[in-house]
């Protein structure tokens, strides 16, 4: 167990290192941030001064070593644009993104599992066909378009829900949360639903496939032969077996939700990491981009770790 954990941490460190190298080289070819940061009217003295100040006059490999030196001390550099530590900028916005992704996950599981169960148990019924058809739309409609449609319907036309921002927040341990106030919750619904759409479809299809696979198994027949109620057979014997693949995929997807919240955050002006990273890429704000990607790698690895542990809790066969 400990060896496994150490291996995981080493893997993570290597991945973070590789990511930063790629970003450094990639951004170097994309363009010079000075061109964007300095006003066109600035003279060459001004340009040179800024280039020196940001350390961009050094060769790329020296810039990278300097960056590594900083990282060792927990410093990912100062944002070119905001003039603040890059890591702090990211961490400040992280709770908003986590809140959005978490809400989307709750919606996806809360709707996906019951609908998938129903579709799996009654595959021939018209309602099941409707659910399966609708899930195809969930897969294929682009998120930004659905987001705009949600705003159009529920915010503009019906006026039921707000279309942008986080609304009122409550601060707990120095972190602001929207879902604890009614206003914040109202602000959260539309973006969370938008982000969840793909995941609902995924969970429905996974659950349905699992049910179809587990139902013909002898142990289900044996459970019925013991005289158990249908409810017990479905919610204990069947559900516990299909939860294994569902949890695995949903866990992995949580990382993607955080990473791809970019689109939803842009559409709904949700002040999370996604919006920050889009702005930073536009301005070639390298410290922020590097810090963001490093954070993403760490988050993905943590999620994988949690999924592995959950997997062991759920499936006795993989426990050692």
């Amino acid at each position: 167990m400990l060896g496994w954990l150490i291996r995981r941490v080493l893997q993570a460190a290597l991945l973070v290192l590789a990511t930063t190298v790629i970003v450094f080289i990639g951004l170097h070819f994309v363009g010079n941030p000075i061109d964007i940061l300095v006003s066109p009217q600035a003279d060459s003295v001004e340009r040179l001064r800024l280039t020196k100040a940001l350390g961009l006059d050094l060769p790329l490999w020296r810039q990278y070593l300097r960056f590594l030196d900083g990282v060792a001390a927990g410093d990912f550099g100062i944002s070119f644009v905001y003039g603040q530590p890059a890591l702090r900028l990211i961490l400040e916005r992280m709770p908003a993104t986590f809140e959005l992704a978490g809400a989307a996950m709750v919606i996806a599981v809360g709707f996906g599992i019951p609908l998938g169960l129903y579709a799996g148990l009654r595959p021939e019924s018209p309602a099941s066909r409707l659910v399966m058809g609708a899930s195809l739309f969930g897969f294929s409609l682009p998120a930004f378009w659905v987001g705009l449609m949600l705003i159009f319907c529920f915010a503009v036309r019906l006026g039921w829900l707000p279309s942008s921002g986080r609304g009122a927040t409550v601060s707990i341990l120095g972190v602001r949360w929207s879902f604890l106030t009614l206003d914040g919750l109202r602000h959260l619904i539309l973006p969370a639903l938008n982000l969840a759409l793909f995941e609902i479809s995924l969970v429905i299809r996974l659950t349905r496939a699992g049910v179809r696979e587990v139902l013909p198994q002898t142990f289900v027949l044996f459970a019925h032969a013991k005289g158990l109620s249908d409810t017990r057979v479905i919610f204990v014997h069947v559900l516990k077996n299909i939860l294994i693949p569902v949890i695995t995929v949903v866990g992995m997807e949580f990382g993607s939700l955080i990473a791809f919240a970019v689109v939803t955050e842009s559409v709904f002006a949700w002040p999370g990491m996604g919006k920050l990273i889009i702005d930073s890429i536009n301005l070639l704000d390298r410290p922020v981009i590097v810090a963001y990607l490093a954070c993403m790698v760490v988050i993905f690895i943590l999620i994988n770790l949690i999924v592995d542990i959950l997997y062991m809790v759920l499936d006795p066969r993989v426990r050692k």
């Binding site: 198994q217 044996f222 204990v236 516990k240």
Partner: peptide
Amino acid sequence: AMIFQDPAMTLNPVL
């Protein structure tokens, strides 16, 4: 009561 052919499949693996 009924018992089945394949004992590997009769019992629920996760309970």
